[in-house]
Amino acid sequence: MASDYSPLILVLATSSCAYPGADEVGKAHLEYSPNIHVVRVPSPVLFPTDFYLRCYMRGVDGILIASCGSDCPYTSAYEKLAKRIDALTTLMKEGGLEMERVRLTAICTVCIKAFLKEVGQMEEQLRPLGPVDRAKAEALWEKAIKELEEQAHTKAA
C-alpha cells in the first residue's frame, strides 16, 4: 500500500492566475500526477474554514491553495485569504490534523515551473503521512459548524 499510495490532492486555483498557469503546463506537455485535481475558483478567499475541513472529512488528502499572490485582482483578498489559512492551520494543529495537508502559494498565468514544483512538493510531503484521518477531520468540522451557529446571533465585533 505505502509504496503506491498516491494522495488525492485538490488545487484551488484562481481563475485569473493559477488556473491558466496550470493550463500552460498542459500546453507545454509537461506532466504531473493525475491525482492532482485543479478546481477553478474566482478567489479562494470565499471558502470558510469548514469547507477545507469538510474536504478532509470526505477523504481529500491535501489542499494546495494556488492564489494570485500580489497579482490578485481583488482588493485585499490575498491578505484575508492568508489570515484564513493561518486560522485553519492553527485549528488543524489543535485537532491533530497534519498541517502539511494545506499549503498556500501563488502561481501566475505562465508559472509553469512554479506549478510543477508546488504540486510535486505537495505530493512529496503528503506521501509519508498516508491517507487523511477522516474521523479527526469530522470532529473538527463539527466543531467549526457549531461555532458558526453560535456566531449567527451575535453582531460583528
Binding site: 474566482p42 478567489s43 478567499v45 470558510p48 481583488y74 482588493t75 483578498a77 451557529e149
Partner: peptide, 13 residues
Amino acid sequence: CAGCGACVAVCPT
C-alpha cells in the same frame, strides 16, 4: 460587487 466572495466565508448562516 467585484465577485471575490470574501463575504461568503464570514457569513455565519
